[in-house]
Amino acid sequence: MAHDTLPHPVKTPRRDRPPAPAPRHRQFWPRRVNPLAGLGSVLWLAVVIVPIYAMISASLTRQDEALGRNALQPPTRPTLDNYNTVLNSGFGHFLANTAIVAAAVVGIVLVLCTPLAYVAVRTRTRWSGAAFRLFLLGVAIPAQAVVVPLYLMIAKLNLYDSLLAVILPTAAFAMPVSVLVLTGTLRDISEELYEAMALDGASPLRMLFQLTIPLAKGGISTVVIYAALQAWNGFLFPLIFTQSDGPRVLTLGLFNYVSQFGVNIPALLASVVLSGIPIFAVYLVARRALVGGLMGVGGK
């Protein structure tokens, strides 16, 4: 009986693997030093820091010493009486009104501008492009040019001297720039990601919430900061559309320290310092997402 002989496996010669590349040593210092960039950074830092220092220093100065001192001179007898004066003169009420206005403006802008930017990017038709360009015309319209029509509309709607009279026009004027920022962010998202979700049967609404919004955190953070600043620093609309102390915001509350016979400069600057802390905290919270959005999304 013949035995079947199986062929012996052929041993391939072993190839020597190439040696692993040597680990690169991380360089902590750049090879080239740009003195002009360093000088420009120092000058810009001085431009930003010096006014802040002068403002904080003056807020710690007594009122009788405010006018006769050098702006850069530290206070000889620092005091917190100016901050006590501000906190006991309705600052908390003005701060609450401003926070309500800012939160409402940010919410309205995000709810309306995110779908608008999504439609402008994903719907590539003649009408969507024309509507997008028409919407951006709001950037070229100054608020001062439409104050009278806005006043008549608010008066007819019985919204005068209320927070809604400040919220609605502020949100309307923040929307064009917000749509422009979000549109630029959404265009950086790769088209292959949308195609992959479409193959899985995802609807446009699902793409918006599960793909677009998570990848557009940088642009959304930029819009949040921009809209919050517009509402926080708004002066024209609160001045014209409000009258009583009930809906008064921080920018109008500064008038409490301005009288016919003089200005309480230390108390005024103390209120400015206190009013800038919340919006600075918002920036600290959103700065990581803001920097990430500036670096690009979607792998581009």
Rank of each mutant, 00 (worst) to 15 (best):
L43T: 15
L290E: 03
I240Q: 10
L294P: 00
R32E: 06
D161W: 12
R187G: 01
F173W: 11
A102N: 11
L229G: 01
T79D: 00
A270T: 02
A270R: 06
R62T: 02
R15D: 02
V272H: 02
M55A: 09
S203F: 05
L36S: 11
V121E: 05
A174W: 09
A2W: 06
R17I: 08
S275I: 04
F209N: 09
R133T: 12
V111L: 05
V106E: 04
A165P: 02
P142K: 08
G299T: 01
I141W: 04
V272F: 05
A155W: 03
L137C: 13
L45Y: 07
R248Q: 13
V181Y: 01
Q210F: 08
V109P: 03
P176L: 12
L67F: 11
R26I: 12
R14I: 14
L134A: 15
I52F: 00
Y257A: 07
V297R: 14
T85Y: 07
L164P: 03
N264I: 04
V101I: 09
L186F: 14
A165Y: 01
W232N: 09
A140W: 10
A196N: 10
N158A: 13
L159Q: 00
A46D: 13
L215F: 11
P169R: 08
Q243V: 14
G68K: 10
V106R: 01
A20Q: 06
D200W: 02
W127S: 07
A196Q: 13
I240W: 08
Q210V: 13
L110C: 00
T98F: 07
L110H: 00
P75S: 13
L45M: 14
A165T: 01
V47W: 08
G129T: 09
P78N: 07
Y194S: 11
A174Q: 15
L163H: 11
T12E: 15
R69V: 12
S57H: 12
T85M: 04
P266N: 00
G262T: 03
A165I: 03
A20P: 06
G138H: 07
P74R: 07
T76R: 15
W44T: 15
V47Q: 03
L67D: 13
L157Q: 01
V272G: 05
A103S: 08
A130W: 15
W232P: 05
V111W: 05
V33G: 04
V50F: 07
G68Y: 04
P266E: 00
F237G: 14
R124Y: 08
A22L: 08
R17K: 11
P204T: 01
N88Y: 08
A71Y: 06
N34P: 10
G38E: 13
E192F: 11
R26L: 14
L134S: 12
A145G: 08
R17M: 09
R24F: 05
L193N: 02
P74H: 08
S221D: 03
A46G: 09
